[in-house]
Design a protein around this nucleic acid. Structure first.
Lengths: 126, 126
DNA sequence: CGGTATCCGTTTGGATACTG
DNA sequence: CAGTATCCAAACGGATACCG
């Protein structure tokens, strides 16, 4: 009600639009690993253990679940090279995952900027 | 090692840079509510219960914790109007939160696009 | 290698009640 | 109103073992 200030950058509708769409985005690509997996696979296709090593800190169980989820949502494709022994499996990002480029770039740019801010403002954290 | 394909969009260094910076970004603004709170407060300053109503689905306990965290990280400021009875508290975003504009816009744009894709491709989900 | 199944501690978070 | 405290259930996720 009262106490309104300068910063009325967003209209009510814009705000709700943002809350809705951002919510939908976070719903599918939110969480600790989804985007990292997509980024890692964007460099090049990777096999399961290779991916796990790249991501450092993710367990096989979680990686497995995340990959299933990403596959279900059309961000990742699972490729089985049936002609090899033992069977080789690799994962690749889909074209749809590429549409996240802007999101990834924005997060990367902001993250890089934030790092600097943190390191200069709070050298003492421990 | 083998099985490399067309899509070597990112160099190894670019990939690691992204993984690092995106990781840092997700560390502070990741999670279900952080960005939504910032978006909601970007419309205008809000009081505690007002904010809770706007966000629909967040409990008082979680909102309280999230606000403390956001305040600690410099995204939100807590303002107490001591001259009122009962005491009125409102929250506002800081200038630093405004630097997230690009991230929010990217997520919003992608989220809006994704909504359409979903609604036309999978009208049957239940 | 590429996972899955199970066990089990940790964390998350809702509901409710309560305070200043 | 603006939270906080407590209780408790569910989800998360690591470790380990195991399979094709």
């Amino acid at each position: 009600m009262s106490f309104k200030h300068k910063r009325t950058v967003l209209s009510r509708n814009e705000c709700n639009s943002r809350l809705g769409a951002v919510g939908d985005a976070l719903y599918v690509i939110g969480g600790k690993w989804k985007l990292r997996i997509i980024i890692a696979l964007s460099e090049n296709n990777k096999r399961f253990n290779e991916l796990q090593r790249t991501l450092k800190g993710i367990s096989a169980r979680v990686l497995s679940n995340e990959l299933k989820d990403l596959e279900l949502n059309g961000f990742v494709r699972r490729i089985v090279h049936a002609d090899s022994t033992p069977v080789i499996v690799e994962y690749e990002v889909t074209d749809y995952a590429d549409t996240l480029e802007g999101v990834v770039r924005a997060l990367h740019d902001w993250g890089a900027m934030h790092q600097k801010k943190i390191r200069q403002k709070e050298p003492v954290t421990a």
